[in-house]
């Protein structure tokens, strides 16, 4: 029904500098997926920033946690985890290619005081999953950019 295997995304740039901290898990995952297409090289050395066609700025990368469910005894039974990610893409000269864009992802997690250690690990797993989701959504947005 018209579906075909995805082709390598045709990025409008050849080199990108990522301002996310080198070694941050999001930065690593982003760089790896971006380079997987084979057409883009991520510049990692800040001294070589002028070789980059585009600069990827992470403006906000924030994790939030709020109570969304309390039982009649006043005990928390549901939390909502959110990841708020805000980025922009620009040229070194300052031309904005993608204006600051927010991606907000949320997941609900049940809670029980006695199982807090298990919930802590589960929370980390959900945050990592949201991060992968964000990376994929950001790459889609970068691929949609037609020209510099």
């Amino acid at each position: 029904c018209g579906f075909a295997l995805r082709q390598a995304p045709n990025y409008a740039f050849k080199t990108l500098f990522n301002t996310a901290a080198e070694g941050s898990t999001l930065g690593t995952e982003f760089n790896r997926n971006l380079e997987a297409g084979g057409t883009v090289k991520v510049i990692r050395d800040p001294r070589l920033i002028d070789q980059a066609d585009v600069i990827f700025d992470v403006l906000v990368d924030q994790r939030e946690k709020t109570v969304v469910g309390v039982n009649a005894s006043g005990q928390v039974r549901e939390f909502q985890l959110r990841t708020r990610f805000n980025f922009q893409l620009r040229t070194l000269a300052g031309k904005r290619l993608i204006p600051p864009t927010e991606i907000l992802i949320q997941r609900d997690i049940s809670f029980n005081e006695s199982a807090v250690l298990a919930k802590e690990t589960e929370e980390q797993l959900l945050y990592r999953d949201m991060q992968s989701d964000i990376v994929q959504q950001v790459l889609r947005r970068l691929a949609a950019l037609k020209e510099l």
Binding site: K65, T66, V67, G74, Q75, V76, E113
Partner: peptide, 10 residues
């Protein structure tokens, strides 16, 4: 509530 204290009773 909130993130600071984990929950009201823990």
């Amino acid at each position: 509530g909130g993130t600071n204290g984990l929950s009201q009773r823990l």
